[in-house]
Amino acid sequence: MATLWGLAVRGICEFDGKYLLLKIRSKSAHDAGRWEIPGGKVKKCEYFDNALKREYLEETGLEIDVDTLLNVVRRDYTACKTNEEVKSIQLIMKVTCDSDEVTISEEHDDYGWFSLDEVNEMIEKGLLTPPAAEAFEK
């Protein structure tokens, strides 16, 4: 079977010196209870900046502007529905928004705006998903 490659895009949003993270719901099959950067999979024939705007709106209720590429991380996983092995490339973008009032989706249990020091503490304690930790470490 051929290797599947997936593309995801995530956005690091800074507002008043704090960064937005979402807590993955406790019933999730992957990384339950860990914190992640908002974003998700790019659909077929979708530009990745539009995918990020769509995912941000779905997950946070925020409308964003995509500024620049910050990082690229890779995460390999097994797809829940098909049991296929997927190699995922995640583009980590810097994004901006005009508000810090977040409305989370059912994918998440909580959200927070954290200082860089708080984010680094969370990384040390293993509270972030591996891609989120890697995105902030570079």
Rank of each mutant, 00 (worst) to 15 (best):
Glu84Asp: 11
Asp110Met: 14
Ile92Gln: 00
Lys81Phe: 08
Lys53Glu: 09
Ser115Gly: 05
Glu84Leu: 08
Trp35Glu: 05
Gly33Ala: 12
Gly33Asn: 14
Trp35Lys: 09
Asn71Tyr: 06
Tyr111Gln: 01
Cys80Gln: 11
Asp76Val: 12
Asp98Ala: 07
Ile37His: 02
Ala32His: 10
Asp67Ile: 14
Leu70Glu: 00
Thr68Arg: 07
Ile89Gln: 06
Gly112Thr: 06
Tyr77Thr: 01
Gly33Trp: 09
Asn71His: 14
Lys87Phe: 08
Asp98Gly: 09
Arg75Asn: 11
Ala79Thr: 01
Arg74Thr: 13
Glu55Asp: 07
Thr103Ile: 13
Tyr111Thr: 00
Glu106Phe: 10
Val72Asp: 04
Asn120Gln: 15
Val42Ser: 02
Ile37Val: 11
Ser115Ile: 01
Arg75Leu: 09
Asp117Gln: 10
Trp113Ile: 04
Lys23Arg: 15
Gly40Thr: 06
Leu57Gly: 09
Asp76Trp: 08
Leu69Phe: 00
Ile24Glu: 07
Leu22Tyr: 06
Gln90Trp: 05
Cys97Ser: 14
Leu91Cys: 03
Met93Val: 04
Ala79Tyr: 07
Asp98Thr: 12
Glu118Val: 03
Asn83Phe: 08
Lys44Gln: 11
Thr96Arg: 09
Lys81Asn: 15
Asp65Asn: 12
Val119Arg: 00
Leu70Thr: 02
Thr60Val: 02
